[in-house]
Lab assay of single mutants.
Amino acid sequence: IRKQWHEDITQDLRNHLVHKLVQAIFPTPDPAALKDRRMENLVAYARKVEGDMYESANNRAEYYHLLAEKIYKIQKELEEKRRT
């Protein structure tokens, strides 16, 4: 379902936000690492998460909020795993 606010969101912005999700899960300073085949699954997962939020959000603010919440949860989980 195409929503009115979707018209304001460019593909570049969506790609940028997918990249932010990927960085939250696997922070790497090396952009070449993103071309690694093992990263493809991670990028696919991040695209799916972003797509789900894009579809479920009712406006741009909610879209950003859902993504920020997801990134926060991912970082929290990773922190907890590092501690144990």
Rank of each mutant, 00 (worst) to 15 (best):
E50S: 03
E62K: 04
Y54S: 01
N41D: 15
A46S: 01
E69M: 07
W5A: 07
E79K: 05
S56A: 13
D8I: 00
K76R: 09
P29Y: 15
G51R: 13
Q11M: 05
R83G: 13
R60I: 09
A68M: 14
E79N: 08
L21W: 00
S56K: 15
K76S: 11
A46E: 06
A24P: 02
N15K: 03
A68P: 04
V43T: 07
I74C: 11
M39T: 07
E40W: 04
Q4H: 14
H19R: 10
Y72D: 14
F26H: 15
H16K: 14
Q75A: 04
E80V: 09
R38S: 12
K35G: 13
I9N: 01
R82Q: 12
R2K: 13
D12K: 02
A46D: 02
I74P: 08
R47L: 03
Y45D: 11
S56R: 14
Q23A: 11
V49Q: 07
E7D: 09
V22K: 04
A33Q: 15
L67W: 02
V18D: 13
R38V: 07
K3I: 01
R83W: 12
E80K: 01
L67K: 04
A24Y: 05
K70Q: 05
K73T: 12
H6E: 08
D36Y: 05
A32L: 12
K35L: 04
Q4S: 13
A32Q: 11
M53Y: 09
R47T: 08
G51K: 14
A44D: 10
D36L: 04
R60P: 05
K3E: 07
K81V: 09
P29W: 15
L78A: 15
K3M: 05
R83C: 13
D8E: 10
E79Y: 01
W5R: 05
E50P: 01
K73D: 14
E80T: 13
Q4I: 12
Y64V: 13
I25L: 14
R82K: 14
A33F: 08
N41V: 03
K48R: 08
F26Q: 14
A61G: 08
G51F: 11
G51D: 10
M53E: 06
L17D: 00
E77M: 04
A46C: 09
Y72T: 15
D52G: 00
M53F: 13
V49R: 04
K20S: 08
D52N: 09
T10K: 10
E80W: 03
H6A: 05
S56H: 12
E77S: 11
D52L: 06
W5C: 01
I74V: 07
T84G: 13
L17N: 15
K20G: 01
E69I: 00
P31A: 10
I71T: 13
Y72C: 12
I74F: 13
R83L: 13
A46H: 00
L34M: 14
E80L: 06
V43E: 08
D30R: 07
I25P: 04
R60C: 04
D30I: 15
N58P: 02
V18Q: 02
N15H: 11
R14V: 00
A32V: 11
L78N: 15
T10C: 01
Y63A: 04
K20C: 04
V22I: 12
M39P: 08
A61R: 11
D12C: 03
E55R: 05
Y45K: 10
I25D: 02
W5G: 08
L21H: 02
N59A: 03
I9T: 01
V22R: 01
N41L: 06
V43C: 07
E40H: 10
L17F: 15
A32P: 10
K81W: 05
H6Y: 05
P31I: 14
E62N: 01
R14I: 00
L17T: 15
I1L: 06
K20Y: 04
Y72P: 13
T28Q: 07
N59K: 03
T28Y: 07
S56V: 12
D8A: 06
M39L: 13
N59G: 07
Q4W: 02
T10V: 03
A68W: 10
K20I: 01
R47I: 02
T84K: 09
E62P: 03
N59H: 00
K35I: 05
H19M: 12
D8Q: 09
H65R: 12
V22L: 08
Q4P: 13
Q4A: 14
I74N: 07
R38K: 12
K20M: 09
A32G: 11
R14E: 03
K81D: 10
V43H: 06
E79M: 08
L17P: 03
Y45V: 06
N15A: 07
V18Y: 00
E55N: 10
H65Y: 06
A44E: 09
Y54D: 04
Y64D: 15
E55T: 04
K48M: 09
Q23S: 08
V49M: 13
D30V: 08
H19P: 04
H19K: 12
H65T: 09
W5F: 05
P29V: 14
R83N: 10
V18T: 07
Y54W: 07
P29G: 12
D8G: 12
P29K: 14
L78M: 12
D52R: 06
Y45H: 07
I1S: 08
V49L: 10
T84Y: 06
E55W: 02
R83M: 13
N59E: 03
H65L: 05
R2I: 11
Y64I: 09
Q4G: 12
R38C: 12
H6P: 07
K81S: 13
M53A: 10
R60E: 12
A32N: 14
I25Y: 15
L17E: 15
P27M: 07
Y54Q: 02
Q75E: 14
K73E: 13
L34H: 14
P29N: 14
L42Y: 13
T10E: 06
D52F: 12
D8M: 05
L67T: 04
E79A: 10
K48L: 01
E79S: 10
R83D: 15
R2P: 09
K81I: 05
T28P: 05
L67R: 02
